[in-house]
Nucleic acid binder design. Structure first.
Length: 429
RNA sequence: GCGGGCGUCGCCAAGUGGUUAAGGCAGCGGCUUGUGGCGCCGCUAUUCGGGGGUUCGAAUCCCCUCGCUCGCCCCA
């Protein structure tokens, strides 16, 4: 094949589908505004060490999914596979945390080298929220509520909130010992993946998709049993908070986040209307991360949403966003007329109107056909006769008439077109 | 990294060994340099993702390869 195409998993977003993306992004911004959460933008490229240290060397994301390469200065660079590490790095680097707690959101492309499938691309897009410096259980609830309300507002169906607690680092350390001992004792009954994880990341064995392993795990020690009283209380308060907001939840003791920085609250919002990649939003608390990346001890909670999956969901709805309406379509034919058309279009644009200029030089009939299809409200017609007189013919494209004499058609001086459209004839939508 | 399905025009799609590769949509041009949503006419694939092979003959059969897609894994 001679023609070039995009790399596998790198998807072009074309104008029409993008309408949905823009709608979604606009709603998200509005929700963030209401929740007093401010935007932060960080580079797509970071030093590799940020993710290795932040996300965890043993995770799949870091271990086998990152786009990592040496730049011309021989530095190891990585295209960001997620947003949290970068946001935390930026907050530390610019001393944001010394100015008090931060309520931040981010959005944009992320990169993971995986096999593409429905709802999963190599360059994909996330929006996420990070509440830095908030340790109270209420902030967990607030973060979840912002995500839930956004999804509900967007009209996403089949939503379910799954909730778990991973406990404090001490709880997890204790539990880890118990679990590893138990797993070792049953090693021969585990699937190979899970066997390998006993040493790399034992908690992840819990959400193994292997049915044999799952049924075996029914008798494994439970994390919930290993929790301290404080952790249990904290988890109870999160649940109470969600109940007070009438956000339904399902406890899922198997829910273990794949990124190392999570502790205490972990959650996912899934949709039954997606395929295999059902998680639309995932997040939790990561109290240790800021310090781990060299900042002051700072509790934090956050989440991320996968926009591809969200768009998939929104695309299933009946109502789809429409192309923004065009106010005016400028038709011209002949040398003098064509010369006059662009200045006229520009004048209208400067006045805030959406104007398409037909620069084809095609027959009037063709230009009218296109004017119709453009969906514009009005057509401005300039021929040589009009151009010579400094006039323009204004036609109402909603009048279905063929006849030139029908209503909705007027001849007026070019200079008056703008004021006529703005003040007079153009109805406010 | 591992499985399954699929690749004919920008999109949808017929064709399953016999030679000029249907049709629809969209696009472009014309009927129509002066008036539109309709209609009619015409144009748009020396070629069936690419390469090799079998054959008198291949989009149709075989091999390799590339790509897309769904799933596993992982995650949002």
């Amino acid at each position: 094949m001679a023609s070039l195409q995009s790399l596998r998993g790198m998807v072009d977003l074309l104008p029409e589908p993008l309408l949905l993306w823009q709608h979604l992004e606009a709603r998200a911004r509005e929700h963030f505004r209401r929740a007093a959460i401010q935007e932060i933008r960080t580079p797509l490229l970071e030093v590799t060490e940020l993710f290795a240290r932040g996300i965890g060397e043993a995770t799949d994301v870091v271990g086998k999914e990152m786009y990592t390469f040496l730049d011309r200065g021989e530095r190891s660079c990585t295209l960001r596979p997620e947003g949290t590490a970068s946001v935390v790095r930026a907050a530390i680097q610019h001393g944001l945390l010394s100015q008090g707690p931060q309520r931040l959101w981010y959005g944009g492309p992320m990169f993971r080298y995986e096999r593409p499938q429905a709802g999963r691309q190599r360059q994909f897009h996330q929006i996420g929220v990070e509440l830095l410096g908030f340790g109270d259980a209420r902030s967990d609830v607030e973060a979840i509520a912002v995500a839930w309300d956004l999804l509900a507002d967007l009209g996403v169906g089949g939503l379910a909130l799954e909730l778990n607690t991973l406990g404090s680092p001490e709880d997890r350390g204790l539990y880890r010992e118990q679990l590893v001992a138990w797993l070792e004792a049953h090693r021969d009954q585990l699937d190979p993946d899970s066997q390998a994880r006993i040493t790399t990341n034992p908690l992840r064995v819990l959400d193994s998709k292997n049915p044999g392993t799952q049924s075996l795990l029914a008798n494994a020690p439970a994390l919930a049993e290993a929790l301290s009283m404080e952790s249990r209380d904290r988890f109870a308060r999160v649940q109470e908070g969600l109940a007070a907001l009438e956000i339904p939840l399902q406890l899922n003791p198997r829910l273990v986040r794949g990124l190392d920085y999570y502790g205490h609250t972990a959650f996912e919002i899934t949709s039954s209307q997606l395929g295999a990649q059902a998680t639309v939003c995932g997040g939790g608390r990561y109290d240790g991360l800021v310090q781990q990346l060299g900042g002051p001890p700072t509790p934090a909670v956050g989440w991320a949403m996968g926009l591809e999956r969200l768009v998939l969901l929104l695309g299933q709805r009946e109502q789809q966003p429409a192309v923004p309406a065009l106010d005016l379509y400028v038709i011209s034919r002949g040398e003098r007329a064509e010369a006059a058309a662009l200045p006229l279009a520009r004048l209208c644009r400067q006045a805030g109107l959406a104007v398409e200029l037909d620069a084809s030089g095609a027959a009037f009939g063709k230009q009218f056909k296109r004017a119709d299809r453009s969906g514009a409200r009005w057509a401005a017609v300039i021929g040589d006769a009009e151009a010579a007189a400094g006039m323009v013919q204004l036609k109402d494209l909603r009048q279905g008439s063929r006849s030139a004499a029908e209503a909705g058609e007027r001849l007026l001086p070019m200079a008056e077109l703008v004021t006529e459209l703005i003040n007079g004839t153009v109805p406010v939508p």
